[in-house]
Design a protein around this nucleic acid. Structure first.
Lengths: 225, 225
DNA sequence: GTCTATATAGCGATAGAC
DNA sequence: GTCTATCGCTATATAGAC
């Protein structure tokens, strides 16, 4: 059961209601600062200052630093992926073109600054918050791969590709798109991919993938066994 | 110019020489603790205690925490990879078998606890130490891929595989072997690959890779153009 | 050169005034 | 409910005794 941002009001209205705007300001500050500097790099004072509230107000809305970190990261993960942005178009005439477009979008998403920051945060606290990493993986990478999987499944049915295991192939394709650069970005290596290099990489991946999955007997849509 | 562990003695022998054994003890403690708990998770007190020396002795041997962290991580990276352990055997008769063995070794290495800990450390301090990450990538992943690259180049020459760009193909193969599990381990997801799943994964990768690179006209060793 | 003891600063979390 | 001021703790880094 994922945590929620909404405060739980046990008593209908015992006194003056807490200011939702302040809670939101704290929440926004956490979502901004934690990805930038990591768990240990952000103090509760810094969050309070960024939000423009006092530290006690902060503690009145959130139990402790861990809780705030948890819901902040979770929120960043969820707002990370607008799932429809990655739905592959209905154009399946040219399989390579569709995969090329998909690859560019995929890389833009998983190698974007926001995504990389989430990975870094989670890596830093890996020994502590394995549940948080699990959540991230479900709402992040898992959902990102899904459109690839669906596409491959349909490509297999229509005979454009030979994909007996769409789940596994989608994961392979995802790994190929990420390549070595994804990990390099996470650990903060200096060099960056130029747009030309990125394009060459995507082409290379699509070449390899299509070559591995193109039907062996082009005239036959499906082969028995 | 990488840092060295050896102390620089500016004066030949001004007084009592510092105890090299204590320096080594501190060094060993740092190499043990930093990978386990990360930069912020390890205090100088903890290192001194682990090494069995006082904190001032520590500071007399190393300028500050950053310097100690730097040379410790660098040392862990370098001792990480005995390059000969990954040299592929001379048996190139069955290409799939060689790749299967290579894949298992490769995964054992890059998904091992030590390697993953290095990734986590670097990710946590990514905004600060990009040079350190660069060093790691050169002495780590880069060297690990090299044997794959050499093997693919020879396989291409002997006509067993069709690998026009061994560098790129080796990187792709590496990405496939790592798969999603490598990243999942870095961020500390809970589930782990069972040996059976690992084996299935490697087989799947080798299937895909061989299928993509097997010569199209089996009888002809090389194709022109 | 090495140790015990300490200075200084920052952390997360809290008590009391309004 | 919110703020100012502070507790208790731990961090890095250092001064004085041997």
């Amino acid at each position: 059961m994922p945590l929620s941002v909404a405060p739980k009001k046990r008593h209908p209205r015992p006194g003056r209601p807490k200011d939702p705007a302040k809670r939101e300001a704290i929440f926004e500050a956490a979502k901004k600062l934690f990805p930038e500097h990591g768990y240990d790099g952000v103090s509760m004072d810094a969050i309070a200052a960024e939000a423009g509230v006092s530290k006690l107000t902060l503690y009145s809305h959130f139990k402790d630093k861990d809780e705030l970190f948890l819901i902040a990261v979770e929120a960043v993960c969820k707002q990370q992926l607008p799932p429809e942005v990655f739905e592959l178009g209905p154009d399946r005439s040219c399989i390579r073109e569709v995969l090329l477009r998909a690859g560019r979008r995929f890389i833009d998403l998983v190698a974007g600054e926001n995504t990389i920051q989430v990975y870094r945060m989670l890596a830093a606290r890996a020994p502590n918050n394995s549940e948080l990493s699990d959540i991230f993986f479900e709402v992040g990478p898992r959902l990102t791969i899904k459109p690839l999987e669906n596409f491959l499944r349909e490509a297999d049915k229509s005979g454009l590709l030979d994909v007996p295991d769409p789940v596994q192939s989608a994961e392979h394709l995802s790994s190929l798109f990420k390549g070595a650069w994804h990990t390099r970005r996470i650990i903060g290596c200096s060099g960056q991919l130029s747009p030309e290099e990125m394009d060459a990489h995507v082409r290379s991946v699509v070449d390899l993938f299509v070559r591995a999955h193109e039907p062996r007997y082009p005239s036959a849509g499906q082969s028995s066994q």
